[in-house]
């Protein structure tokens, strides 16, 4: 049994040695699968996902996580799967899983507002994401990988969609004054997600505009501001990293 998040206050260090405002190592590649129109592989720490994009292609299917598809617009499909070995215990998570479906829905809603859907009437763009290893910030990793794969596929978008997670560290009473100190934390791993209230947010092009904000835990209202500030800053950095990956392809 290793230490838990309550030790953050002892030296302002997180369970993996990071500071409050540090991202884990992010590594990514694009064009990883020749068969797809666009593809990517992305690591955020030990979270690993691969993503493929097919389309835009003629025809309209109906499937899970469908979005858009109004008259004269493209249809966006998102499918998310978990590899059996991705978690700590080998648990199967079927496609029918409610949380997986929710994640797919979040992605398709977010991306359909960024992709220039009207350029491809009567066609379908499908995003397939496979999670190879889970260590927190899964939704954020999916969004980032999907952005890369969409760029790789040459799907026109107004800007990148970049995501990360932010949490609120356990409260510690400051020695002076007795007021509460709680640092917001950036980019959570699985252990931190289990113990702390956190949110996932995605911004457009690493700016201030938030398109995705998901929070399933309860947190004091006063904490949210700090969490958002750190999250927005984190997204900006993720944007730069992804940008580097995309530009690096040419070389």
């Amino acid at each position: 049994m290793p230490l838990d998040t309550s030790t953050y206050a002892l030296a302002l260090l997180r369970l993996d040695g990071r500071r409050w405002n540090e991202l884990r190592r992010i590594r990514a590649q694009t064009s990883t699968q020749a068969a797809a129109d666009g593809s990517s592989y992305l690591e955020m720490g030990n979270t690993q996902v691969i993503c493929t994009v097919i389309g835009p292609a003629e025809g309209r299917n109906t499937g899970a996580g469908r979005s858009g598809g109004r008259e004269g617009e493209a249809n966006l499909e998102v499918e998310i799967g978990f590899a059996g070995f991705s978690g700590v215990d080998r648990k199967r998570r079927g496609k029918g899983d409610k949380r997986t479906a929710e994640m797919a829905h979040t992605l398709s809603t977010a991306f359909s507002s960024l992709i220039l859907m009207h350029l491809y009437p009567h066609s379908t763009i499908s995003i397939h994401i496979n999670i190879l290893s889970q260590d927190g910030s899964i939704l954020a990793a999916c969004i980032n990988a999907a952005t890369l794969a969409l760029v790789d596929a040459g799907v026109p978008m107004t800007d990148y969609l970049v995501a990360c997670t932010a949490a609120s560290s356990p409260t510690t009473s400051a020695s002076a004054g007795g007021d509460e100190v709680s640092d917001p934390l950036l980019d959570l791993n699985a252990m931190e997600e289990q113990e702390l209230p956190f949110l996932t947010l995605a911004t457009v092009g690493g700016g201030e505009k938030i398109t995705v904000l998901v929070m399933e835990t309860r947190v004091r209202v006063e904490r949210i501001e700090g969490m958002l500030a750190v999250g927005i800053e984190g997204c900006k950095r993720v944007k730069n990293i992804l940008d580097g990956v995309v530009r690096g392809v040419g070389r």
Partner: peptide
């Protein structure tokens, strides 16, 4: 069951 957990360490 035995679980193996790999954790990152940022030095």
């Amino acid at each position: 069951k035995v679980q193996k957990i790999v954790r990152e360490l940022y030095l």
